[in-house]
């Protein structure tokens, strides 16, 4: 089921999303992104030796997770721009919460802007940004 542009209103909230960032998934991502040579993405102990709190999720994986949340909500909506700020580390094997809310609706271009955040278990915003999404219908 895909959303239609006419059904979207300013202030609409995307369903909260709890991404799977178990270490094995982060390792899989790091392999596909050719980042697996960096132990800070694949090994908790080695990451701690580098002074990190544990293996961390690559910024572009957090960005990809937020994009997937937008796709999961919008269906056929096309992300034209996604702009993310990586404010703090996201640690593998934790349970962040991703949220999105529609903050601009432009009938002229059939695009919307979604404010995006990822929060850690301490409710700190680790990633924030916006996505511009275009709809054909």
């Amino acid at each position: 089921m895909s959303l239609r542009f006419q059904d979207i209103e300013l202030g609409d909230e995307l369903p909260e999303h709890r991404p799977d960032i178990r270490l094995e998934i982060v390792r899989e991502f790091a392999g596909a992104a050719r980042m697996d040579a960096a132990a800070r993405f694949t090994d908790h102990d080695k990451a701690r030796e580098e002074g990190l709190p544990g293996a961390i999720v690559p910024g572009i994986m957090s960005q990809g997770i937020l994009a997937a949340m937008v796709h999961g909500w919008s269906g056929d909506g096309i992300i034209e721009r996604i702009d993310t700020v990586f404010r703090a580390m996201v640690v593998a094997d934790t349970e962040p919460i991703c949220r999105g809310v529609v903050t601009d609706v432009d009938p002229g271009t059939r695009t919307i802007v979604v404010d995006l955040t990822m929060q850690n278990e301490a409710h700190e915003t680790t990633v924030l940004g916006t996505a511009t999404v275009r709809f054909s219908v």
Binding site: L10, G11, D83, V85, T103, D104, V113, D115, G129, T130
Partner: peptide
């Protein structure tokens, strides 16, 4: 990342 008009609308 915010346009001023969008603040007003919000």
């Amino acid at each position: 990342r915010a346009k001023v008009e969008n603040y007003c609308e919000w």
